[in-house]
Design a protein around this nucleic acid. Structure first.
Lengths: 245, 245
DNA sequence: CGAGGTCTTGAGCTAAATCAAGGTTAGTGG
DNA sequence: CCACTAACCTTGATTTAGCTCAAGACCTCG
């Protein structure tokens, strides 16, 4: 059993702390930015903040949808698991991402912390209320949803038709975008395991590992350690990932 | 070159005919149903109707987004194609579906008619206007977008982790749902080609064909002809598709 | 310092892709 | 009206990319 699965407990009300939105590092990135200033301040009444350790399970697949989450620090993964343990990491969520909104009554995937993370927790009832009262909020959610659809379509093409090397290259570049890393900065850290990457790219751990090695051997990247990548040949990486441009 | 690619021409204004919403077969299914009655009637000013033959290209990937489409009859396919001809059919759109909304400035996939089809054409400017004026309209779009995200996540799991037989079974059942075919009715028609199915499921034509044959040999389906399926053993089909339930 | 977890690498296998060929059907032109 | 063509679908033979199985190195934490 992997270390990943150690933290099974859900979080109790005790873990919730009052919000201080004015100190929120993700404030401009988050959906909250689409609310008028006075409402954004009163969010502190609606939402609470929760911090959790790496591999904590925030929502379990199949549970009824009650809350949605805005990531403020760390990294989450959205995971669908089949009874026979086949797994698909549908996506990674970084600060500013809003997760947990669905039209199904039950969560279709579990949400887990990749590293120590914190989120703002919203009751879906409150979200519904906010959506009704603030057209701009609903508008922003729709905008984000459209972008998520585009991303999902990218992933579908990647999973259906790209080679392992192309998948990995696309993944690295997409992650850099999500993390808002400047083009000039060659470094990239990978908080997730090879298993998470494999289950995100529809490959096995071994194939992911071999693909990293091939990129290194070809001088496209350096791997100071398994969790850190340095891009040495951005052109070659772009070329490999060109399918998703 | 496939027969599919014969119809290349775009449609001119001549092909557009005035709307008669009161006769629209997709009215209750379409986004229009979320507009107040008086506004829905005046849609006829906003939108025009267009009919096109099988394999017509409605929008070409890469073009700037200017219009969105509500399918009223027939079937469309959304297709991403790579320069080296790798292809991904991101989805099929049936009457009631609304396609063409995106946050990217350019269409990420082409939209093509699978069979002779008709759509209502909306200018995106008008859509923006409608969204602003009618919260319920925006709300409906967000609801649909959320469902599309869930569907896309299903597809990702399918493409990443399911066997060809599981993919085909899931596809058949999903298509029946989209077409609103009653559980009691065992028949299902497949207007799209094996190539479309292959590019939708991330397989080759040959593997799709062999999978159909296997389902037939196992007594799960009958294939009176390549375009018509009869489900003989719904339980077995459900079982195969259970991953996406 | 030992146990459990992660990552890498090698060897061999297998499922699906590729290559190839034949049958069927639909549309075209003589 | 029929022959011809082109597309589509199916099936078989062969190849191969990525999976499975196995082993060893490394690292972290108790």
């Amino acid at each position: 059993m992997s270390r990943q699965s150690i933290v099974h407990c859900r979080f109790s009300a005790r873990d919730a702390v009052p919000l201080d939105c004015s100190r929120c590092g993700a404030r401009e990135l988050a959906v909250c930015a689409s609310l008028p200033a006075e409402e954004a301040d009163s969010l502190e009444r609606y939402a609470s903040s929760q911090q959790m350790p790496a591999n904590a399970v925030i929502v379990r697949s199949g549970q009824p949808c009650r809350q949605a989450y805005s990531v403020t620090s760390g990294m989450l993964r959205l995971v669908r698991t089949l009874p026979d343990a086949r797994r698909q990491v549908v996506g990674f969520a970084l600060p500013g991402h809003f997760v947990g909104l669905s039209e199904a009554g039950h969560y279709r995937h579990s949400i887990e912390a990749v590293v120590e993370s914190s989120v703002c927790v919203f009751d879906l009832d409150d979200i519904r209320d906010l959506r009704k009262r603030h057209p701009q909020f609903e508008h922003t959610l729709l905008e984000r949803a459209c972008r998520e659809i585009d991303d999902a379509h990218d992933s579908m093409l990647l999973l259906a038709r790209l080679s392992p090397l192309e998948r990995l290259a696309s993944f690295l570049l997409r992650l850099r975008q999500q993390m808002r890393i400047a083009d000039a900065d060659p470094r990239l850290s990978l908080p997730m395991t090879r298993g998470d990457i494999a289950d995100h790219l529809g490959l096995t751990i071994e194939t992911v590992s071999r693909s990293f090695t091939r990129l290194r051997e070809q001088g496209v990247i350096a791997l100071p350690d398994p969790q850190h990548v340095e891009i040495l040949d951005a052109k070659a990486l772009d070329q490999l990932a060109s399918a998703l441009k």
